[in-house]
């Protein structure tokens, strides 16, 4: 039997008995949809964004009312991280919006979804690595300044070399670890879906 034979009877085949849709049933569908994976991810992203927003006045408070330099520098850094996170959440919510199936042609829909997710993954990865480098950099500078306040001459130079070596070693190790973890995490989070979408695009001949 060929596809043409099936074509002749395809639309005549009986379908599963489904009760006609009513406004009440539609409302029930909408209520159930609140628990869909996409909406749950969206809801979580919104909560994370709100939490990040709430952190901003806390960091501002530290900046305004604390006298010591180290907490103030870290608060400033945390504030920058929060701003970066908000930028990430903005893109995350946009990408999640794009994941909703629309009435676009399949290829357009998949291209848009893939681009949105790729962009999101890129932001997340860069932001994570930048945050790590920044945190280590600040820690190094602050520690070096602390040494410089108490020590002089050769002893200070020795301590700075040891400090630099320790930071370089731990930084290199942590960077590598974080890089792997971030790759794994992103692959787990979005990678499989992106791979699937890319396979669809390849098949459509894009």
């Amino acid at each position: 039997m060929e596809l043409d034979d099936l074509r002749q009877r395809w639309r005549q085949q009986p379908t599963e008995p489904t009760p006609p849709l009513t406004s009440e049933a539609m409302q029930a569908y909408l209520n159930q949809a609140a628990n869909s994976p996409l909406l749950r991810i969206r809801r979580n992203a919104r909560y994370e964004a709100i939490f990040t927003l709430l952190l901003l006045p806390v960091t501002a408070g530290v900046l305004l009312f604390v006298r010591e330099t180290y907490p103030r520098v870290m608060a400033l850094w945390l504030m920058l991280v929060c701003v970066g996170l908000l930028y990430y959440f903005y893109h995350k919510l946009r990408a999640l919006d794009q994941l909703r199936p629309t009435a676009q042609a399949l290829q357009q829909q998949v291209i848009q979804q893939t681009a949105g997710l790729r962009h999101l993954v890129q932001i997340y990865y860069r932001f994570t690595m930048l945050t790590l480098v920044g945190t280590f950099g600040i820690g190094l500078v602050m520690q070096a300044l602390r040494f410089a306040r108490n020590e002089y001459g050769l002893k200070l130079a020795g301590m700075l070399i040891v400090l630099l070596a320790a930071y370089a070693l731990i930084g290199w190790f942590t960077y590598g670890l974080m890089r792997r973890f971030t790759h794994w995490y992103l692959q787990r989070l979005y990678g499989q879906h992106i791979d699937r979408l890319e396979a669809v695009l390849r098949e459509l001949g894009a």
């Binding site: 869909s36 994976p37 996409l38 994941l99 199936p101 629309t102 009435a103 676009q104 042609a105 399949l106 829909q109 998949v110 979804q113 499989q192 879906h193 699937r196 979408l197 669809v200």
Partner: peptide, 28 residues
């Protein structure tokens, strides 16, 4: 966003196939 000028079947197939093929929940 449905435009009555557009063919209803095209609109239905587009949305249905987009859901069947590209939806995130498809993973589950």
């Amino acid at each position: 966003h449905y435009e009555p000028r557009a063919k209803v079947s095209t609109w239905l197939y587009r949305v249905a196939l987009n859901v069947a093929i590209s939806d995130l929940r498809q993973r589950t």
